[in-house]
Simulated scan of single mutants.
Amino acid sequence: MTPAEPHAFSSAEIDAVYRVIAERRDMRHFRPGAVDPAVLQRLLWAAHHAPSVGYMQPWRFVRITDAALRERLQILVEEERVETARALGEREDEFMRLKVEGLREAGEVIVVALTDHRERHIFGRRTLPEMDLASVACAIQNMWLAARAEGLGMGWVSIFDPDKLAGLLAMPPGARPVAILCIGHVEAFYPKPMLELEQWAERLPLDTLLGENRWPGA
């Protein structure tokens, strides 16, 4: 069947886009093996071609290739994992049973950060300054979908103290780390999001999140 819109991709291409969205997973389990440098470059290309408010391109990437540095990142994550568990109260033990990162196993680790001097960018941010963060999230999502299409797993780790991580990576004042990305080969992709499989949470029905001309449910 030919798509009705003249500028649409072919039906097979459209199906592929929706498939990669549906099958993308936040991966925590990896098997050993380096990531092909050409593939990694394509993933970074995808990230860098994300939309950004005011075309500010606020993303910066730090590839972690030093084993000792990767271990220090893992220690930072473990410190915050314990603090997060304590903050969860009655769900502390349940949270501590979850696998929240794959830093030691992943073939590649990339830290994604907001650049410094973001205050210069006023276009689109005068009343919503957090749009720099939204732009970086778009870059990470591009990378995530590209990784899934390439058959690689990717996990977004956000459990860390951003000031400690910024200092560890010699980031300039004003820069702020947003994500530690674990990228690598996997035995299989989870059939559902891991936190759903672990019964931590469930996907909300779309119709409860959608309103027409007013807030949903109002």
Rank of each mutant, 00 (worst) to 15 (best):
A85M: 07
E150A: 15
E119N: 05
I64N: 13
E80K: 06
M143Y: 03
Q74M: 11
A139V: 06
L88A: 01
T115D: 13
V82R: 12
A67M: 08
L133N: 14
D116N: 07
L73T: 02
F61W: 10
A87I: 12
V62E: 08
R97S: 15
P58F: 06
H121K: 03
A68P: 10
R126P: 04
N142C: 03
T65H: 15
G151H: 10
T84D: 05
R72F: 00
K99W: 07
E79C: 02
H121R: 08
L114M: 13
Q57A: 09
R60Q: 15
A113Q: 07
E78N: 15
L73M: 11
L73E: 05
E78I: 06
E90I: 02
R126M: 01
P129Q: 08
E92F: 03
E79M: 04
L145Q: 11
A67N: 11
E130N: 04
A113L: 09
T127W: 05
L133W: 14
L76Q: 10
R148K: 13
Y55Q: 10
A147Q: 13
R91F: 03
H121S: 08
V112W: 01
G151D: 15
L133H: 03
I110R: 06
R104T: 12
A106T: 11
G124A: 04
A85N: 06
G102C: 10
T115N: 11
R125I: 00
R60K: 14
F61Y: 09
W144L: 04
I140Q: 02
R148C: 10
E105R: 06
F95H: 08
V82A: 14
V100I: 14
I110V: 15
R86E: 15
R120S: 10
T65K: 13
P129F: 08
R72D: 06
G151R: 12
A149C: 09
R125F: 00
R81N: 15
A134Y: 02
A137I: 04
P129R: 06
V109G: 04
H117N: 09
E119D: 13
G151V: 09
W144Y: 05
E94P: 07
V109Y: 12
V136E: 04
L76W: 01
Q141D: 12
L76H: 08
L128A: 07
F123E: 06
H117K: 10
R81L: 02
D66A: 07
V111Q: 01
M131K: 07
L69I: 09
V62D: 03
L152H: 12
L69H: 02
M131N: 14
R125M: 06
R126G: 00
A68G: 15
R118M: 11
E108H: 03
A87C: 04
L145R: 06
G89Y: 02
Y55T: 06
S135R: 01
D66E: 08
V62N: 07
R126S: 03
R118D: 11
A139K: 01
T115Y: 01
I75F: 05
L98F: 13
M96G: 09
T127N: 11
A146V: 07
D132H: 14
